[in-house]
Simulated assay, not measured.
Amino acid sequence: MAVKDRDRFSTATRIKLLGEQTAARVYRSQTKRQARRSRLTGRAALLALVVCSLVVALAYPIRQYVSQRAEIAGLERQREQARTRVEQLRDLKARWQDDSYAEQQIRDRLHYVMPGETGYIVIDPDAAKQSRVDQGAGDRPWYTNVWDGVDKADRSGR
């Protein structure tokens, strides 16, 4: 027994025993940690899968909802613009029903005068200068005069 006791209390034996106990504890804690990690990883993967499937399932309907709301807002703006335009046209129609307004417009737009009145048309000085430039049109080729006439007609439409 003395040899056993001596082996039991020797430094080498104690270090060896301590190393084995420590190794066992480390091994147990690693396996527990790995078990915990693997469960957590599985739960996290399942949660990620559920979240992804919800995102995929809801993405299209949400996109449709947002686009439809934008379309509805655009249509409401158009309806309001149309309503405003209808009101303007009703006001204009009511004005044209008034004989004095119609007479004023006819005088202004068509240059009509009442019997006994003398009509005058004031020519814009810039237009007069332009007509002087056109007096020399006989010196240019005919196609230049045609294109100038087309350009003048285009400018007067604006």
Rank of each mutant, 00 (worst) to 15 (best):
D91M: 09
V150K: 13
G42H: 09
A12W: 04
G149M: 05
F9Q: 12
E71I: 04
E71C: 01
M114A: 11
R79A: 04
G19K: 14
K4N: 05
A44H: 07
R63E: 02
T41R: 15
S156P: 00
A44L: 15
R69E: 10
E80S: 10
Y65I: 02
D108M: 09
Q68R: 15
M114T: 00
R155H: 06
V50H: 12
Q21C: 02
A44T: 06
T31M: 13
G119W: 04
A23C: 06
R83C: 02
K93P: 00
P61D: 03
L40C: 01
R79K: 12
S156L: 10
L89V: 09
R79Y: 01
A127Q: 10
R77M: 03
V113R: 14
V122L: 13
P141N: 04
Q105K: 11
V55A: 06
A137K: 12
R95K: 14
L47V: 04
R36T: 08
P115E: 10
A153T: 05
R109V: 10
A128V: 12
A59G: 06
V86C: 02
R140I: 03
D154C: 01
C52N: 03
L40K: 15
D154I: 11
P141H: 02
A94P: 00
A73M: 03
A48V: 06
R28W: 04
Y65H: 14
S156Q: 09
A94I: 01
Y120R: 13
V3P: 00
F9R: 12
S53C: 08
K32W: 02
Y60P: 00
H111I: 02
W147N: 09
A128W: 13
G116C: 04
V50T: 09
M1R: 10
D154G: 01
L75Y: 10
R90K: 13
A153H: 06
R36G: 05
R37Q: 13
Q135N: 10
R63W: 09
V122Y: 07
R28I: 08
K152R: 14
N145A: 08
N145K: 06
D7W: 09
Q88V: 05
H111Y: 08
A24N: 06
R77G: 01
H111C: 03
K32M: 05
T41E: 15
T31I: 15
D124K: 07
G119N: 10
E71V: 06
L92A: 15
V51R: 15
Q104L: 15
I123Q: 11
H111P: 00
Y101P: 00
Q34I: 03
L17G: 01
V26I: 15
R37P: 00
G138S: 14
V50N: 11
D99F: 07
R8M: 08
R132T: 04
A57P: 00
E103L: 08
E103Y: 07
S156N: 08
A127G: 05
R43F: 09
G138Y: 08
Q30I: 14
E117G: 07
Q21N: 05
G149C: 07
R28E: 12
S156D: 05
V122R: 14
L58K: 05
Q64R: 11
L40P: 00
R90M: 07
L92K: 15
E87S: 09
Y60R: 05
P141L: 08
D134Q: 13
V51A: 14
S38K: 15
D98Q: 14
R39G: 00
V113D: 06
Q130V: 11
R77A: 13
A24M: 11
I72W: 06
R8E: 12
A12I: 03
R37N: 15
P141I: 02
V50C: 04
A73I: 03
S67M: 12
